[in-house]
Amino acid sequence: MKSLLDELWRDKAGSTGIVMVVALILMAAAAPLIAPYSPTTQDLRARLAPPVWEDNGSWKHILGTDHLGRDVLSRVIHGSRVSLTVGAAVVLIAGTFGVILGLVAGYRGGRTDSFIMRWIDTQVAFPGLLIALIILAVIGPSMLTVVLVLSLNGWMVYGRLTRGAVLSVRQTAYVEAAEMVGCSSVRVVFRHILPNLTSPLLTLAILEFARIVLAEAALSFLGMGIQPPATSWGLDVATGKNYMFRAWWLVTFPGVAISITVLAVNLVASWMRLISDPQEREKQFARQMRALRKKHAPQGLQETPSL
């Protein structure tokens, strides 16, 4: 654990990402305490007020207000709740479903395996966004339906990854030993196979989280996601679009919030991949060794051509 923290500290991008993610989670949790106003309070006398640093800006509304006089900063702070909740819920639902199907396919093999894999292959080739839009149009967009539709579209990656990993672990001696001793198949799968998959699954889940945050924003932007009066960054960009030429801040700040969130999560994911993928670790080690050798070798005596 300590060495892990050490490693995290050395990777500046990864540690920045973690700090940003923690800050975002805290911000979402404490949104009503931090936000200066309620996200839905209208102040019609202060409509389309610019941010502080612009002319006519005031400290009353630091990032300005929208066409109904709602405080942009408060809406951005509250919007984080929707993004993080939707992301976490979808990763949890899609991940659980995909992992279970992948475990079943990999462990049972045979006809079950080929059925599940054919299902996954077929669904991966579906035009996901269009089908999501149709389903949302028919059953009505809301936070719950957005979560369901995005889970329906996103479980296949987990299934594939899990099945592949199960197949490679299945033949190992310790799994055979566990079966020989008479462990039930449930015990073998959960006790002896699943723990091996923790780190690749965790990395995938983090990457998927970033993708889901973007997908929710896109659905809300298209008007088929979170509905007013609820707040969502994507929704705020869509409403700000109508005032784009007069009030640039309405489109800009929610978009910046989405970008920062996704960037932070991506930084964490790429760090996770670096430390959990043995191949990546090996490459990193080789790179460090080469750098060391270069430092100590006399000029012009380098082993590799200067690539």
Partner: peptide
């Protein structure tokens, strides 16, 4: 690598709107 990560993190619809604001407006 860093610029690619940023490119992956910016929502596409927002990038489009920013381009409109800067280059068209």
């Amino acid at each position: 690598v860093f610029l690619s990560l940023i490119g992956l993190s910016v929502p596409q619809f927002w990038l489009g709107l920013l381009l409109i604001v800067v280059f068209a407006v």
